[in-house]
Design a protein around this nucleic acid. Structure first.
Length: 329
DNA sequence: AATGCTACGGCAGTTACCTCA
DNA sequence: GGTGAGGTAACTGCCGTAGCA
């Protein structure tokens, strides 16, 4: 099991974000994270024998967080046994729409102004024709929404709150799945309001609240992941403590073994018994070169391999007899 | 080109109402 | 029928951006 942590500028080359040092298996098993978005990204991955998520999953996450939510249960189930990947990154940047053709005095579709009869739609001059909301469109939308306004006018005055019908909610949901923000260029807000017999402000509010709910839900999912990973790390920590005690016990019985650098320790892949690594250094110097100052640990400062020493997958496999001989000698 | 104003849209936080157990 | 919790429509305030004079 390996854990990698990285913190850095995602706009840089994706290779800088690989959870690996070049002499570990994890680089081979995949990129822990890459992200083309600008901004700071924090990613945390945990896996058995390193099998991390890929770029595609990240992009899916960003592009459609709602779908990610729907698939989260599946993801969690998969993450229980083997690899767990936790991504803490900004939600998908909401594209800012520019140059809205509808200019209104004050806040758009402000209900208080509307109720006071102060809201007058004003079309910007000089815009491209397809960009400009025609007067007829505005009038029609206002007329349509005024019907809705008439219907809930009394409820507004009486302080009652209208609840959207199932059909209205379903249609809005459908549009939200396609894109979580309203497209001003396509006059989506007015179109939806017209189709659903709602005020444009209601459509706008619905999308805002819907985004907020999605974000809240994602936060809950992230917290759940964090909790699971915390539990996993706690268990790993406990196991490593136990392993350390065993190593110390071994050292006390055979002090010669622990006089060597920790990185030269090996473990029998068969029975997982630790062997003295003196022979590793003395008999196979070519396959076990000393760590140089230009090692990958320095070349990838953003990557923190964890645990720092894990002999279980030591690359220089030998026959069990070799380990047993070394351990007994 | 720099600056201030205005309009707009998004978000966080909050309130108020409705529904349901 | 009263009540508390949860869901959600709606509001408020702030901020960033874009267009314009």
């Amino acid at each position: 099991m390996e854990l990698g942590l990285s913190l850095g500028d995602s706009s840089k080359d994706s290779k800088e974000f690989k959870f690996s040092t070049k002499n570990s298996n994890s680089e081979h098993h995949g990129t822990a994270m890459t992200n083309k978005q600008d901004g700071l990204v924090f990613c945390m991955a945990l896996g058995l024998n390193s099998t991390f998520g890929n770029q595609e999953s990240l992009e899916n996450y960003n592009q459609d967080d709602d779908q990610t939510l729907q698939g989260s249960d599946d993801h969690q189930e998969k993450s229980m046994g083997t690899p767990v990947q936790l991504d803490l990154l900004p939600l998908a940047p909401v594209p800012r729409h520019t140059g809205s053709p509808l200019r209104v005095s004050g806040r758009s579709e402000n209900s208080s102004l509307r109720q006071l009869g102060l809201l007058q739609p004003v079309v910007a001059s000089g815009s491209a024709e397809e960009e400009v909301l025609s007067a007829n469109d505005v009038m029609e939308a206002e007329r349509t929404s005024s019907r809705a306004s008439d219907e809930d006018e009394n409820s507004h005055k009486s302080g009652k709150k209208l609840r959207l019908s199932k059909e209205q909610s379903a249609y809005l949901e459908e549009n939200f799945k396609e894109h979580s923000t309203l497209n001003p260029k396509q006059k989506q807000k007015l179109a939806l309001a017209k189709q659903l017999n709602l005020r444009p402000r209601q459509v706008e509010v619905w999308f805002q609240n819907r985004r907020a709910r999605t974000k809240l839900k994602q936060t809950e999912v992230d917290c759940e992941y964090l909790k699971r990973i915390c539990d996993s790390l706690t268990e790993e920590n406990r196991r490593l403590h136990k392993e350390l005690q065993e190593l110390r016990a071994l050292n006390s019985s055979n002090p010669f073994c622990m006089q060597l650098p920790a990185t030269t320790l090996t473990m029998c892949p068969s029975c997982e018994r630790v062997a003295a690594a003196a022979t590793t250094l003395t008999t196979t110097p070519a396959t076990n070169p000393p760590i140089s100052k230009t090692s990958t640990i320095e070349s990838t400062p953003k990557v923190i391999p964890f645990p720092l020493f894990r002999p279980r997958f030591y690359p220089f496999f030998r026959s069990p007899s070799h380990y047993h001989q070394s351990a007994s000698s």
